[in-house]
């Protein structure tokens, strides 16, 4: 059962080669394997990241769209409200303006009527004086009869 020296030396040579391979060959192989593993892991992570980013972007886009829709509805509401307000205000303004114009016109009419009446009254007084002059054939002293005339004018 005892191995002879030949076999022992063969074993030593074998382990020397094993050492050689472990020292100089194995690191390269393991490095290549680890590099490949790292590359695969990196690729998978990148894919995951990309997928996540895509989902995020999708969510963001959906969010933006929803927000835009809400904003649009709000804007339309506000615009309708404003339009209603403008119409209401225009109506009120128109009513106020109309009333004012009517009042002005009424006052004018009133004052014109008054003036006409005054004028008429004066003219009637002159007519009355002229008639009385003709009747009396003499000139009435306007001053002497001023009281009388004024009384007459106010009575007309």
């Amino acid at each position: 059962m005892i191995p002879n020296i030949t076999l022992v030396i063969q074993g030593l040579a074998f382990f020397a080669v094993v050492w050689l391979v472990m020292k100089f060959g194995w690191p390269h192989i393991i490095a290549a394997i680890e590099e490949r593993q790292a590359k695969i892991a990196e690729g998978l992570a990148a894919a995951d990241r990309a997928r996540q980013e895509l989902a995020d972007a999708d969510a963001r886009v959906a969010d933006e769209i929803r927000k835009a829709r809400v904003d649009a509805v709000a804007i339309i509401d506000k615009a309708t409200q404003q339009a209603n307000q403008i119409v209401d205000k225009a109506r009120t303004d128109a009513i106020v303006e109309g009333t004012k114009q009517k009042a002005i016109a009424a006052a004018e009419i009133e004052s014109m009527a008054h003036r006409a009446r005054e004028e008429l009254r004066g003219k009637v007084a002159q007519l009355a004086i002229a008639g009385a002059e003709k009747i009396l054939k003499r000139e009435i002293d306007a001053n002497a009869h001023k009281d009388l005339l004024d009384q007459l004018v106010s009575e007309i």
């Binding site: 030949t6 030396i9 063969q10 030593l12 040579a13 074998f14 020397a16 080669v17 050689l20």
Partner: peptide
């Protein structure tokens, strides 16, 4: 000698 020759030949044989 056997060790050296065996070592070299085994390594080469890889």
């Amino acid at each position: 000698g056997q060790f050296i020759a065996g070592f070299v030949w085994t390594a080469f044989h890889v």
